[in-house]
Design a protein around this nucleic acid. Structure first.
Lengths: 229, 229
DNA sequence: CTGCTTTAGTGTCTATAATACACTATTTAG
DNA sequence: CTAAATAGTGTATTATAGACACTAAAGCAG
């Protein structure tokens, strides 16, 4: 049944650009390589697609192995297949990107022992393979998606303040946004609802906490559409 | 050097969704399969990625083999890798889409003997493999791209009338557009220039022919950006 | 308890872009 | 010269984006 072709059979991997926000800045998850090639260099988490395994399944499996996180916003990015991109031979990689909210990123800290670390996007070390190119592509896509989808919302805990939401947008876009215009557009989307709670933190007026309107949000999550800025 | 991994090595193919406009309607190029599986069914043109061959190079090569056309707008679409998508074994396919202008689509007629035919998108036969899914994805992307890029312009000969350009948009979007609004937006883009020529054809007022402003267009082609509708 | 600091929260005006909508102009065929 | 067919043109309305500044509420210091 399997493999009856007389054509080259490259290895196929998945690589993940996993983003989060820490301390107001966009970070990406990197792993320090333990073996050759590129030993000691940082790389995107990823690995080989297994026998009979779907590509997205492989990406989710790798994600869980590396970070312990399930059930994520995960999107196929691009497939990189230059013949020389891996010095060991022909390896084609399907890149995905994912977002982890600030309250779930703690889980991944458990695996930190294995050389897994969050790196600020504005202070990246040199990366293995063509992972710099992949990351550049991923950041492009992320910023783009931000403009017409709700991706940014993936990066927040269940309840959040509007300032926190704006902070996410500013961190990804790399520029400041006007508070009033931002709030007006969010309100227009009609996907948030107030809670009675307030975030009491620090020496200043407490901010109201919001959450998504569950029904609306679930529908939109599938379509991916919405959220212009 | 090559293939030192102990991991599954699927075959990797490229498949192409090649669109054109014929008689005012969106068409896609299909090939009738000569062998098993899906013998006699229609399929997207495509084929295996060769040893040491870049993915896009493979797509361009297949395109040329099937249609004789070079130098096309070609864009990676998505990679499909469900384990069971090919009954012969694990085959991962990287899908591309391309657009051929009405004056170049004639070239491809030369290979028609081999069961290569244009099919109207609104009257497709059943397709082999998961090619219906791939096509659906491609059409989605094409319509989307139309709204914020200049892709539509790829489907026209060097000189064309504004009505022809509008026809392209209507064929892809599947709905009519207002003539005055369409022309205003085109003018705003500032990427067309008038020629002195007119298209004398039929029993009616002749239309002025336009062409792209070469410099502007070359810049935009790379970026891919521009052209909201 | 007063006031200083810090972040939350709110509304208007202007500019730009999108849409709806109808008539005149030019050509050929008969 | 008239009929048929497509080319070509402008205005008014509505929706969206961006610029912009002050008041509100909490904690802490004195």
């Amino acid at each position: 049944m399997a493999y009856t072709y007389e054509y080259p059979r490259p290895s196929v991997t998945v690589d993940l650009a996993i983003f989060t926000i820490r301390e107001g800045k966009l970070h990406v998850l990197l792993i320090r390589r333990g073996g050759q090639p590129f030993k000691g260099k940082w790389a995107l988490p990823g690995g080989f697609v297994l026998e009979g395994e779907d590509l997205e399944t492989a990406a989710l499996r790798e994600l869980q192995e590396e970070t312990g996180v399930r059930d994520l916003y995960l999107e196929q990015l691009y497939t990189f297949g230059e013949p020389q991109r891996d010095p060991r031979g022909r390896v084609i990689t399907v890149a995905y990107f994912a977002l982890i909210s600030s309250d779930r990123q703690e889980l991944s800290a458990q695996t930190d022992a294995a050389g897994v670390e969050w790196h600020a996007m504005d202070a990246l070390p040199p990366l293995a393979f063509d992972h710099e190119k992949i990351l550049e592509y991923a950041l492009d896509r992320l910023r783009n998606k931000l403009e017409y989808t709700t991706v940014g919302f993936q990066l927040l805990p269940k309840k959040f303040t509007l300032s926190e939401l704006q902070g996410i947008y500013e961190a990804i876009l790399g520029r400041g946004l006007d508070k009033r215009n931002f709030r007006r557009k969010i309100a227009l989307l009609d996907i948030l609802e107030e809670t009675d709670e307030k975030k009491m933190e620090g020496v200043h007026r407490p901010a109201r906490l919001y959450r998504f309107k569950a029904r609306k949000f679930e529908k939109l999550k599938d379509k991916g559409i919405l959220f212009p800025f």
